[in-house]
Design a protein around this nucleic acid. Structure first.
Length: 936
RNA sequence: GGACGUUUAGCUCAGUUGGUUAGAGCGCACCGUUCACAUCGGUGAGGUCGCAGGUUCGAAUCCUGCAACGUCCACCA
């Protein structure tokens, strides 16, 4: 064995170890040992990071959690597959590249380069990002199968997108429609509802009439849209306006003649403003609904560039909405039409990327209809493995082939039936709320980077009218149908492709269309067993964007849920709880922290100390703490390995012969026979307890609790007690090795590098990553060793405390004379060697010491110490008094409880037994403390 | 406006179906480096579990109300 350095240096070993793992093939389930091949499939799809640059702490956390899960399940013998990948992220990537090009000096990159050249730049950038991301993923120690790396914009995924589009179009779920959409004037594209965010601003709420003759005043924060008004809506019961309902007026609004019908609609709040609402069907989704109900016409007055259209008259045409608004308010005031102007707080819709105010415009776009019933192509959401209770109440079945359902129903039932479980459960409610309010999903985008809408048009008349579908022939195809056909210029929302990720990344669809693409029949068939995937781990902020859409796509296309569990982690915030952002300069970069503290430390800091769905604060100090723990584990290993190497350890060498022969005998007897020492039996029983508990916790996504328990065991029980005892009691090589092996295995999913490194140095059998998870406890609990050991441990802590007291600490040597019950004295005698060592004292038992259980040895000058004389009497008395008071209070209350018949009959037996035992101990303690008090 | 979450030690957070005298890490105070580790060891201080009621033999945990902070959704035009 080489000389092992005192401190573990992660930066020297991590890269090498990762390369070894890759070379060994264990990341690929097809190359796993037989045990795994025969095991249950276990699959995680990595949420594909956007190809927009680099990974951040959120990604790091996701990878740490997923790697923990996949390593845990792989070690337990499952056929574990973790598929890595990246997302082309359509708009995000295009915007990013545009910004870069503008920085480089271009004014309008798309115009200057043209579609083809511009796209080439985006692709180049995306490819570079991919390399960076892959490199970072490796640095995190992720044990994903790189041979299966997928991309949302590669050939297989393109096929999936096309197939889904085609299927949904055939089923009438994808339709072209002229509707109001969210429009981003900055990037000139539509946005889905989820890509729109809000910003609180103060604006002017203007109350006015269209002209002097118009009898009803209306309020608005956006006067410029009023050019498009076609009605005024009032509440049906509003007495003020009842007389006008049904009448049509023709006011002239700042130079533009309008036709305004007064309609009654219950959606109008009579208490807001004047109780009358100017209806603008073209520029408000709410108003459009009202317009539909009353058959009102739609008049568009704002164009895609957020400027006024010519219809509004020469005074305003071509002005931006902001300019128009200011000018209009001025004009209305001048004309004396304004009743009031007040400042109000308003949530302005803005674009997620770029932050420009979003306009609502009527446009011809492609939509996924979520509320439209369609005919199922296959049995859907039927769960053959459902437990009996679910079968009894019908939660095991969804629908049969041929049934009529809506996408919304599928999305709801997937979670409602428990076929997909959301962790933490509280997010289920949010999911349902979102589903229930879901509107049709606008999937076409006017950006260049992304999957082109696979639809082709050809004119069949000299004056085609595409918006009405007249004079135009349309066909869905992924390749050109021939001469004279033109493809739809739009691309698809990026979530349309990532929605199919769980199965497209596994090779779906099963075969290529005759029209193109390589036949790849085997890929999906080969991976079929991995779907539904086991767990989807991602940030909680992405629940709606992504999780819901994956449920939609998977239930629709395959008739099954995309994953059994969805685990949501919270945001990683800085130590003050702020969001990490470039402008605040508070970003912690995993790539900077890893070389400094090691990947294992970074991973631990993300895994321990937080709960699912809850935001977590991260600081360098925290990571440093886990770096320290990594080093502790290293030194524990180093100590054990050195100790068990007989040729190296001087103390062990002295009794080498007998020791070697007795090795396995000792271990066996400690495990089966109540042989070995008390400490041996204690550590083995603790270990078995920890194995069971950590396994259970990892199975239920309690990573933090599992890690904490392991850390406590490793640091407190193993290092601080058992290893110290092992310095005194000899012949523990086999037990130490067993304990070390088990501890390394348990830690491996959390901190793969240091555990692998130690495993390699120790020369333990096989590769760690495929080592079996320690499922069977190393020893049964046959005797009360836990309780006995704990009594001695408490004793030693007491001795240390007294040892550290003022006056005593000055002595060169301290001797304790211990009195107590016979069983304790016997235990002390049996374990005297390590008790004396760990308390740094000598101790005697059985001698008659009247004052209590701690005295000085007679006051002789050599080593003795008169404890009573050295201690601050008043302070000591006060302390004792306080302790006694507390104990007596406890005893009184406990006795009270135990004498309460209601309590003893209703409380569980183990609680009562525990209380009784604790009570006896407290009584003994009171006795000894009282003796001591008398002696003072 | 609706929904959800959070409130426990100086700080960051655990606390799984109600059950012993509520825990951990960090920080702090004091002591300690010859034999794995100062990225260390030992000892200790520190909490009426946000507030007010209720249910119960028993509440940090369940119920009701309130407060503060946070997140999401919908928006009042």
């Amino acid at each position: 064995m080489p000389e092992l350095p005192k401190a573990y240096d992660a930066s020297l070993v991590e890269e090498k170890i990762y390369a070894e793992w890759e070379a060994s093939g264990v990341f690929n389930p097809d190359k796993l040992p037989e045990r795994n091949q025969a095991g249950e499939p276990y699959c995680i799809m990595m949420p594909p990071p956007n190809r927009t640059g680099t990974l951040h702490m959120g990604h790091a956390m996701g990878m740490a959690i997923q790697d923990l899960l996949i390593r845990f399940e792989r070690m337990r013998g499952k056929k574990a597959l973790w598929v890595p990948g990246t997302d082309h992220a359509a708009i995000a990537t295009q915007v990013k590249v545009e910004q870069l090009l503008i920085k480089e000096g271009m004014k309008d990159p798309r115009k200057e380069l043209g579609r083809e050249k511009f796209l080439a730049r985006v692709v180049q950038f995306a490819d570079e990002s991919r390399d960076t991301i892959v490199n970072q993923t490796r640095k995190m120690g992720s044990s994903c199968d790189w041979s299966r790396e997928a991309y949302t914009f590669d050939e297989t995924r393109n096929r999936a997108v096309y197939r889904l589009f085609k299927m949904m179009h055939e089923d009438g779920l994808i339709e072209r429609g002229y509707r109001i959409v969210n429009w981003d004037p900055q990037f000139k594209t539509t946005l889905s509802d989820d890509e729109v965010q809000t910003k609180e601003v103060t604006t002017k709420l203007v109350t006015f009439t269209y002209d002097k003759e118009f009898p009803i005043a209306i309020s608005t924060t956006r006067p410029e849209t009023k050019f498009g008004d076609t009605a005024v809506a009032v509440h049906p019961d509003d007495a003020r306006y009842k007389a006008f309902i049904g009448k049509t007026f023709t006011p002239t609004f700042c130079g533009k003649p309008l036709s305004i019908k007064v309609v009654a609609d219950a959606a109008v709040d009579p208490k807001f403003g004047t109780g009358a609402l100017g209806v603008t069907p073209a520029h408000s989704m709410i108003d459009a609904d009202i317009a539909t109900r009353h058959g009102l016409p739609t008049v568009q007055v704002i164009g895609p560039d957020a400027r006024m259209l010519p219809d509004v008259g020469p005074e305003f045409a071509g002005l931006t909405v902001e300019e128009t608004r200011a000018k209009l308010i001025e004009r209305l005031e001048r004309d004396g039409l304004v009743t009031s102007i007040e400042d109000v707080q308003q949530n302005l819709p803005i674009a997620e990327r770029g932050g420009a105010p979003v306009e609502q415009l009527p446009m011809e776009q492609w939509f996924v209809r979520v509320n439209k019933p369609f005919t199922l192509r296959q049995d859907t959401l039927r769960d053959p493995k459902a437990p009996l209770w679910k079968k009894l109440i019908g939660l095991d079945r969804g629908w049969k082939k041929g049934d009529q359902v809506t996408l919304k129903q599928l999305m709801r039932f997937a979670v409602e039936s428990g076929q997909t479980r959301i962790v933490p459960e509280s997010f289920t409610k949010i999911y349902f709320n979102w589903i229930d309010n879901l509107r049709d999903w606008c999937i076409s985008r006017q950006i260049w980077f992304g999957h082109r809408v696979p639809v082709w048009y050809r004119s069949t008349s000299p004056q085609p009218s595409p918006s009405k579908g007249e004079g135009v022939e349309m066909v869905v195809s992924d390749v050109s149908p021939g001469e004279g056909w033109e493809q739809d210029p739009d691309t698809l929302d990026t979530w349309f492709s990532s929605g199919s990720w769980t199965f497209s990344a596994l090779g779906w669809p099963p075969y290529a269309e005759a029209s193109g693409g390589k036949p790849d029949e085997d890929a999906w068939a080969k991976h079929r067993a991995y779907h539904p995937t086991s767990v989807l781990e991602t940030g909680k902020d992405i629940l709606f964007f992504w999780i819901a859409r994956m449920v939609l796509m998977s239930t629709y296309a395959l008739g099954e849920v995309p994953f059994k569990d969805a685990y949501l982690h919270g945001l990683v915030r800085d130590e003050q709880g702020r969001k990490m952002s470039k402008s605040l300069g508070n970003i912690l970069d995993p790539l900077e922290l890893i070389p400094k503290y090691g990947t294992d430390a970074v991973r631990l800091s993300l895994l321990i100390g937080n709960t699912p769905g809850q935001d977590t604060r991260l600081s360098e100090q925290k990571i440093e703490g886990y770096r320290n723990f990594t080093n502790k584990l290293w030194n524990i290993s180093r100590f054990i390995l050195t100790m068990t190497e007989t040729s190296r350890h001087p103390e062990e060498r002295s009794d080498e012969g007998s020791h070697l022969a007795a090795r396995s005998e000792i271990l066996r007897s400690a495990q089966n026979d109540n042989g070995g020492t008390l400490a041996d039996r204690w550590i083995l029983s603790r270990l078995s307890e920890v194995v069971a508990s950590v396994t259970k916790k990892l199975e239920t996504y309690q990573f933090s609790a599992a890690g904490e328990e392991l850390r406590d065991f490793t640091w407190n029980d193993l290092a601080d007690w058992y290893l110290e005892i092992a310095k005194v009691e000899k012949g523990k090589s086999e037990i130490l090795k067993t304990v070390l092996q088990t501890v390394l295995k348990l830690w491996h999913p959390f901190m793969p590098f240091v555990t692998e490194y130690v495993w390699g140095i120790a020369g333990f059998d096989g590769k760690l990553i495929v080592a079996e998870w320690p499922t069977s406890p190393p020893t049964p609990l046959l005797r009360n060793e836990r309780g006995e050991f704990d009594r001695l441990r408490t004793l030693v802590v007491d001795m240390r405390r007294l040892r550290a007291e003022q006056g005593v600490e000055a002595a060169k040597q301290v001797e304790f004379s211990i009195a107590g019950d016979q069983s304790l004295l016997k235990l002390v005698e049996e374990n005297r060697a390590w008790i004396e060592r760990l308390s740094n004292s000598t101790c005697a038992t059985g001698s008659a010491i009247p004052e209590g259980w701690v005295v000085t040895p007679s006051g002789t000058a050599t080593v003795g110490l008169n404890l009573a004389g050295a201690v601050d009497l008043e302070k000591e008395k006060a302390k004792l008094g306080k302790e006694l008071e507390q104990l007596k209070k406890y005893v009184a209350s406990t006795e009270g409880k135990l004498s309460n018949q209601e309590f003893t009959t209703k409380a569980p037996v183990h609680v009562i037994n525990d209380m009784k035992a604790k009570l006896e101990e407290a009584k003994i303690k009171i006795e000894t403390l009282e003796k001591r008090q008398k002696s003072l």
